[in-house]
Design a binder for these strands. Structure first.
Lengths: 151, 151
DNA sequence: AGTAAATCCTAGTAAATTACTAGGAGATAA
DNA sequence: TTATCTCCTAGTAATTTACTAGGATTTACT
């Protein structure tokens, strides 16, 4: 039940992007320098977030990434699902109307997986990027030594 | 953010055990037959749950496993933590008073991981084995074809 | 026109983890 | 004494993770 580096790094990167892209697009190079992440790897994460419609890219010199929508419109759930895939603790935990497991009616554990799924979904969907950015400003995270912590 | 087969199989096995161990201990052979699980693998899961104090074993012929405490005293959280290890979505998500990450005061994402951790913990800790057993009886899960579903 | 700074896209790959299997020792009831 | 159990340690194939590598393409600037 661990998040991978994709989700962890990606959320950090997006918070960074949200803070620094108010005027011009922000390059992968600058994000990875501030956040101490591999440029090549971050590239892939940004690509995933782009496909998910969270960021837009500007190609060529002076280019980079910008948020595709308002910070308040992006939830942690959007970010993590873009990077981790479904957050369901097991494959069948979702609420598919019909496509789900045939055995669902007789499945006790499905109730458990669904409860876990619901609680995760609810919390990640209610935390939005603007809150995190504000929190980051308040804590003056810019001065934080990123090599100390990989989360 | 997926549970492994340990957690999935193990919870199923323990529900099965709770239902069938009212009189005599239940053997791994019988659980694995009913639940369509590998005996050897289940053996390991039972051993983990024993170490965690959830079940007791009776060795020798006619032996097997019994719950170590009342069904109502065992939560899904107890079971999953015994089998999966910590349920924290990232290493630092817990509430360690001091042993935690040095950067915590400056770490925005830690807030996120902790919120997720808290919501998972709360839901798994409030679901107890007796509820699941009752639900299983109500649904007549005994007739379920276990080969159809691995969760 | 040329160059530097960017994103974009696909593959490859070492390390770690998962999900088992295998073998055999020891305990106990019949 | 034998069949049925738990117990314990190792091994291992398959999968996933976390990257790295190479190069094509786009664009601003001089």
């Amino acid at each position: 039940m661990k998040l991978s580096t994709k989700g962890r790094y990606g959320l950090r990167a997006l918070i960074d992007l949200a803070q620094y892209s108010t005027e011009a697009p922000v390059s992968i190079t600058s994000i990875s320098a501030r956040q101490d992440l591999s440029e090549r790897y971050l590239e892939q994460l940004m690509s995933m977030m782009k496909k998910a419609g969270l960021v837009k890219s500007v190609r060529g010199a002076g280019g980079g990434y910008v948020l595709a929508k308002d910070m308040a419109e992006i939830s942690v759930g959007d970010v993590l699902r873009a990077l981790e895939g479904s957050l369901e603790p097991v494959e069948c935990a979702g609420l598919e109307p019909d496509g789900g497991c045939k055995a669902a009616d007789y499945c006790v554990t499905k109730y458990v997986w669904q409860r876990i799924n619901d609680s995760i979904s609810q919390t990640v969907d209610e935390i939005r990027l603007d809150q995190l950015v504000e929190e980051s400003r308040r804590k003056q995270c810019a001065g934080m030594d990123r090599t100390a912590c990989k989360n």
